[in-house]
């Protein structure tokens, strides 16, 4: 069932929706920045599953970046949700891998508020899934929403574009870091393969 609102209400809903998307994008930009800060500041090299979780987080951002470039689309929400599900699968598996400390297996890296990264990933993903569920409950039947591009709100579009560029730059930094850490082979947490 589709709903049609007055033009003014539709514009307000679209504005709220883009703000919502921007908040999600900024949250993931902050998380990915913190991951890089731990890597380069504290020398905590990410494990392969940690890197795959970063990939999933960038994938979540991908859907939002498309929203800011080409206008909101439920397909983009679907792409972000696919990546969120992948993030949940990887983080749950990593949590279960290390939940029982034994030789060669223990949570690596710093704990934040006593919780390690893969467990944080689960919490973050659950909050994200809840956020998207709320978004779809409130706006899911609105078929006019995709007709309003982010460019209808110039300041929001500028902030969204800047955040998008920042996330793309973070991904590029991660690419270089992966090249240094793994080369073209398997990734290890002992050191940067290309710097040894």
């Amino acid at each position: 069932m589709s709903r049609h609102h007055s033009a003014e209400l539709e514009s307000d809903l679209a504005f709220g929706n883009y703000v919502y998307q921007l908040l999600i994008l900024l949250t993931f930009a902050a998380i990915l920045t913190a991951a890089l800060a731990f890597q380069f500041g504290d020398g905590e090299l990410p494990c392969p599953l940690c890197l795959l979780q970063r990939v999933a987080m960038f994938g979540i951002c991908f859907g939002i970046i498309l929203d800011f470039r080409n206008g909101f689309s439920y397909r983009n929400v679907g792409l972000s949700l696919l990546c969120a599900i992948f993030l949940l699968i990887v983080s749950v598996r990593q949590t279960l891998l290390d939940i029982y400390p034994r030789e060669g297996h223990a949570y690596i890296g710093s704990a934040v508020f006593g919780i390690h990264m893969p467990v944080w990933s689960i919490i973050i993903t659950l909050f994200l899934l809840m956020a998207y569920a709320v978004q779809l409950c409130v706006l899911g039947g609105d078929m006019d929403l995709p007709k309003i591009p982010a460019g209808a709100f110039p300041i929001l579009k500028r902030i969204g574009s800047a955040a998008s560029l920042y996330v793309i730059a973070l991904a590029a930094v991660n690419l270089v870091a992966v090249l240094l850490q793994c080369g073209i082979g398997q990734c290890h947490t002992m050191g940067y393969a290309l710097l040894q």
């Binding site: 990939v55 960038f58 690419l175 992966v178």
Partner: peptide, 8 residues
């Protein structure tokens, strides 16, 4: 992993 990040 490098290929994955390059495609990303």
């Amino acid at each position: 992993m490098l290929l994955i990040f390059a495609v990303l």
